[in-house]
Nucleic acid binder design. Structure first.
Lengths: 180, 180
DNA sequence: AGGTGCACTGCAACTAGTTGCATAGCTAGA
DNA sequence: TCTAGCTATGCAACTAGTTGCAGTGCACCT
């Protein structure tokens, strides 16, 4: 019930095709609201039917035609309405924690390697976030409005990844000394 | 594909009925792998058919009969197999971030109140985690095996909530000074 | 006496999200 | 030259998860 709104937010920042939106979801808004291109196409169609967005067919040379979507007045109204109502608190689904919890029922060394691998993935993600921060928000003290809000969300990502990394280190250290 | 394994881990720790599992998911393992009672009943049935668990009907006085599930040899084998293969990295779905990002398109004061509300929810959750930590793991340095692993997962929850709270404070401060 | 809530299971209908594939032409590298 | 990958959309079939309801009987509160 909120992919719609994530798309509306993204389309308000800039009009785009389903494909472009899927790319954006891979790189920015999808870090805290993941979505596949299939899901995005489906929801765009639904929103088009509901009149929250409109599309323009754009012919391209050497590429398939695309449909560029933009938010309609009804879409902006829906977004405003949604912004004023409560959202569910964040949902985390972390298989790694399940694994750690069950580690002693299997190969604990393999679980430890998994933790190290996840640490690597999260370190890479943190670097991505820091790169965006350096490039887009070099002077955070001067921000306000939309840019400030984007920056704050990014800060949430940075904090979450930093905290995850620190946790991985704690787990790795504890599991290593347990095994030795 | 991993609720099965979360249930297997939980049932290995202690046998239980679908209802009891649903309670456990509300209080512990479900913090990083949420599930409703419906989903749990359905998956239990599937695992029973697959032979990963067995059930015993237990008649009770003044209450409906219950089916107490326990992990079979095939279930333990499946769990071991799963523990050795890679898991997807954690998925976060956070509507609050979407809202903050879209805040300037609506009532920013309302979004700020939402952040404060979420801060409260997460502070309560952190207290729950700390309570479990005090009660179940007063001497963390002495832990090993299953208890150590449970403790480490709990530490992940504590760290995640602490980090979330700090982020909320940063957001609240930035949005307040922006508005004044 | 009546209502609420808990314990326990489950069906039915729904929404959301995933996976695999198809099409099509262009570009860049081995 | 052949393969792989990107841009672009979408169908079909699937799995996962949610929501609403139903039944039963006990305990507890008002």
């Amino acid at each position: 019930m909120a992919l719609e709104h994530a798309i509306l937010v993204s389309l308000t920042e800039r009009a785009g095709s389903g494909y472009e939106l899927a790319r954006r979801f891979d790189r920015s808004i999808g870090f805290f609201w993941p979505a596949t291109h299939q899901q995005i196409y489906r929801v765009l169609r639904r929103m088009d039917d509901a009149g929250w967005v409109t599309h323009t067919d754009v012919a391209q040379e050497g590429r398939p035609d695309k449909k560029v979507y933009e938010v309609s007045a009804a879409g902006r109204e829906e977004l405003t309405r949604w912004l004023a109502e409560p959202v569910d608190i964040a949902v985390l689904r972390d298989g790694l924690s399940v694994k750690i919890r069950g580690a002693s029922l299997g190969d604990t060394a393999a679980v430890l390697r998994e933790v190290e691998r996840h640490r690597g993935e999260h370190a890479a993600l943190l670097e991505v976030f820091r790169g965006i921060q350096r490039r887009d928000f070099p002077k955070p003290a001067k921000l306000n409005g939309r840019e400030l809000h984007q920056y704050l969300v990014l800060r949430g990502g940075v904090r979450a990844e930093e905290s995850f990394l620190a946790w991985c280190d704690e787990v790795i250290e504890a599991m290593r000394s347990e095994r030795s």
